[in-house]
């Protein structure tokens, strides 16, 4: 009996915290699905209508389609580079334990604590010198760099937990060690890779601080830039803003929901050991 009471209380708490987490999304949905003629602060609405005009209008005036394409290119590019480089580096840190590797790793970890703003002006000068303003490739490199330390940290921890015997077998079969890494070890890294992809993918997708400087052309704007400009231009029109935000948030939310299973596995694998 007592057990059932506990279970019931647990259930209630779980439902409450879930609703709490969903609350802003619910408010956003109400706004986005309400005709703009309804004044929210005067009349409280608790159920979303089925009114889609806000989305159509927001889509038309916000140019968010192009922003989604830009965000997609930059995110996929940066994440790919990040995964390749940091898995290699993580392997080096975990398996080739010499002083150079250790120092390089510590330097990069230490940099995680440095406020990014300190770099703004010098980085901007650098970007101009290499012709990187308003280009996808330079933005990809900058953002891939920013998330390197954390990825290497996750990879090295995970690789440290893999038995050495697996790659040693491959080396005996005639593989070089680097060959063994790509052929044997890398495929084993899928759980931690998916964690890296999701964590860094989200922070790159949501990046604002760098994008605001390096992507100035209107045709190069990413989703956070497009939405924040939209907020500026149509600040009083909450209904349109909510619709634009929902369009902009949707890709991240859906990708997350699709991949969340691997993500949890990756987190388990990458963070608990190491």
């Amino acid at each position: 009996m007592k057990q059932y009471v506990y279970r019931f209380i647990r259930l209630i708490i779980i439902i409450t915290i879930s609703l709490l987490a969903l609350f802003p999304f619910y408010v956003l949905a109400i706004l986005a699905f309400t005709p703009s003629s309804v004044n929210f602060s005067e009349k409280l609405i608790l159920l979303p209508n089925l009114y889609f005009d806000n989305f159509i209008e927001a889509w038309k005036i916000s140019n968010i389609g192009q922003a989604i394409a830009n965000s997609l290119i930059i995110t996929v590019g940066a994440v790919t580079i990040n995964v390749v480089l940091s898995s290699m580096a993580g392997y080096a840190v975990a398996r080739v334990k010499n002083k150079t590797n250790k120092i390089m790793f510590l330097i990069m970890l230490g940099c995680m604590m440095i406020p990014g703003i300190i770099n703004t002006v010098p980085l901007y000068t650098l970007m101009i010198a290499i012709g990187g303003i308003n280009t996808h490739w330079a933005m990809i490199l900058v953002l891939a760099t920013n998330s390197l330390p954390f990825s290497i940290f996750l990879y090295s921890g995970f690789i440290g937990g893999i038995p050495k015997t697996i790659e040693e077998a491959a080396i005996i079969d005639g593989c070089s060690r680097i060959g063994a890494f790509f052929r044997v070890v890398f495929p084993l890294l899928k759980p931690v890779t998916s964690a890296v992809v999701i964590i860094n993918g989200l922070s790159i997708w949501n990046n604002y601080a760098q994008a605001v400087f390096f992507l100035q052309k209107q045709s190069m704007k990413t989703i956070p830039l497009a939405i924040s400009m939209f907020f500026q231009q149509y600040g009083a029109k909450w209904h349109l803003m909510a619709a634009a935000s929902m369009i902009g948030l949707a890709p991240a939310v859906f990708t997350f929901i699709i991949f969340q299973k691997y993500f949890i596995k990756g987190i388990t694998a990458g963070s608990v050991k190491g």
Partner: peptide, 26 residues
């Protein structure tokens, strides 16, 4: 057969260009 000793280098190189160099200047 020696390459695996340098696997951290590509990451560190990129990091040096886009983070450490501007950082030192900063």
């Amino acid at each position: 057969s020696k390459l695996h000793n340098f696997m951290i280098l590509p990451a560190f190189l990129l990091f040096s260009i886009f983070f450490i160099y501007p950082l030192l200047k900063g």
